[in-house]
Amino acid sequence: MDADNPTLSGDAKERFEQLSDCLLRRICLLDYPPGTRLSEADLAAEFGTSRTPIRRALARLEDAGLLQSQHGVGTLVTDVSLTEMARTYELRCELAGLVGRLSPVTITTAHQKQITEFSQRAAALLASPDARRFAALNMDFFIFGTELTENQALRDMSLRLYYHTARIWLQSIPQLDLARETAIFSGEITQIGEAIAASDPLAAAMIRQAHISLCVVRLKKFAQG
């Protein structure tokens, strides 16, 4: 679902998932920066739905640590410190390696097609770096990576940790070299694409793990000024 142009469709369950995904992407892409107050009434009007699914979606995001309800204030987007983010990245690094070991999927032509699409998006970013498009591609590519395991618990934990810190990385981009980060990310996609072409999900996971580890190093340097 397009976070910029939300249109709910399908049955009640499908519309709820679309709604939750849209709000999630808006938080991760900083459309709703930390501290933003989300109004059930305003969201219900925007999405053309009742407040009940809005309330359920906000509760899901609060459970994920992305929102916080404060009495007398409302529902606010949470923040994450650089120190907390670095620690979370360290855990994400360990989980990334497990994706290739615990119930890895069989690589199909659909996976290879997705890699081709990611590579095309990365090439467009290299030609014209953009922080928001970088973050959107990073999110979509990470989700793709979690789908290389059939272990649902591992998927869920990996995604929860990713969503908790993704927006802080986007906040840091203005202080980083976006063109360089884009080139590094494009290289990662290329390397993982080669592993996918070889039908080797373990190699893909190891490459992902190595890049997350290097990302932690860069973030720590950024935090230290």
Rank of each mutant, 00 (worst) to 15 (best):
residue 79 D to P: 02
residue 64 A to L: 10
residue 161 L to E: 03
residue 136 A to Y: 00
residue 90 E to G: 12
residue 100 G to Y: 00
residue 83 T to I: 13
residue 115 I to N: 02
residue 73 V to Y: 14
residue 127 A to H: 15
residue 96 A to T: 14
residue 51 R to A: 08
residue 59 A to V: 08
residue 146 T to A: 00
residue 65 G to M: 13
residue 68 Q to D: 07
residue 99 V to Q: 04
residue 122 A to W: 01
residue 105 V to A: 10
residue 79 D to W: 07
residue 77 V to E: 02
residue 96 A to G: 10
residue 104 P to D: 07
residue 80 V to I: 12
residue 116 T to E: 12
residue 150 E to F: 04
residue 132 R to D: 03
residue 117 E to M: 15
residue 123 A to Y: 12
residue 97 G to V: 06
residue 109 T to D: 15
residue 140 D to R: 09
residue 70 Q to I: 15
residue 44 A to K: 05
residue 158 S to H: 00
residue 71 H to R: 15
residue 46 E to T: 14
residue 114 Q to M: 07
residue 93 C to A: 14
residue 113 K to T: 14
residue 156 D to R: 11
residue 88 T to P: 00
residue 129 P to D: 06
residue 107 I to Q: 04
residue 145 G to Q: 12
residue 159 L to I: 13
residue 69 S to I: 12
residue 159 L to Y: 01
residue 86 A to C: 05
residue 97 G to A: 03
residue 160 R to A: 09
residue 101 R to Y: 08
residue 93 C to Y: 13
residue 92 R to H: 11
residue 143 I to E: 03
residue 162 Y to P: 01
residue 99 V to P: 00
residue 149 T to M: 05
residue 68 Q to A: 07
residue 80 V to G: 06
residue 47 F to I: 11
residue 126 L to A: 12
residue 145 G to V: 03
residue 107 I to N: 05
residue 50 S to E: 13
residue 129 P to M: 05
residue 147 E to N: 15
residue 130 D to E: 11
residue 48 G to R: 11
residue 72 G to C: 08
residue 134 F to I: 01
residue 162 Y to N: 01
residue 158 S to T: 02
residue 89 Y to M: 09
residue 95 L to E: 01
residue 149 T to S: 14
residue 60 R to T: 14
residue 58 L to F: 05
residue 148 L to G: 01
residue 69 S to H: 11
residue 154 L to F: 01
residue 88 T to M: 04
residue 84 E to Y: 05
residue 147 E to W: 11
residue 111 H to K: 05
residue 134 F to M: 07
residue 51 R to T: 14
residue 98 L to F: 08
residue 120 Q to Y: 06
residue 95 L to W: 01
residue 99 V to Y: 01
residue 48 G to Y: 15
residue 53 P to A: 11
residue 65 G to W: 10
residue 71 H to I: 14
residue 67 L to K: 04
residue 105 V to D: 05
residue 156 D to I: 10
residue 145 G to C: 12
residue 123 A to V: 11
residue 85 M to K: 10
residue 59 A to I: 06
residue 161 L to M: 07
residue 91 L to W: 05
residue 47 F to G: 05
residue 108 T to E: 13
residue 63 D to R: 08
residue 131 A to L: 02
residue 46 E to K: 12
residue 50 S to P: 09
residue 107 I to M: 09
residue 149 T to P: 10
residue 115 I to M: 07
residue 51 R to I: 15
residue 51 R to C: 06
residue 49 T to A: 08
residue 55 R to M: 06
residue 95 L to I: 10
residue 77 V to H: 01
residue 53 P to H: 06
residue 127 A to T: 12
